[in-house]
Amino acid sequence: MKLILPDRDTRVIDPAPATVEAILQREGINPLEVMVSRDGKLVTEDTVVGGDDEILIIRISHGG
């Protein structure tokens, strides 16, 4: 599974099924502070992802 972090750092992670929430927790990210897409489509934090999914984490900038 490919994981793209808010700073655009990309890494390949274990393809075993996991919730988006679990992946965010491993990265120390609060799900309320980001949006997450799987293969270009927004998903909720309790969505199970895995396999060859591409997960993009988008930081919600504060202010404005």
């Binding site: 393809p15 309320l32 489509k41 199970v48 396999g51």
Partner: peptide, 28 residues
């Protein structure tokens, strides 16, 4: 690589794929 497709939780109101879980109401 193992291909796993698990559907996104569905919208509480129409069944389409949800884009957000409103945690304070519990609605997708």
């Amino acid at each position: 690589p193992v291909t796993i497709r698990t559907d996104t939780p569905a919208c509480t109101l129409c069944g389409e794929p949800a884009v957000i879980l409103q945690r304070h109401t519990g609605r997708y």
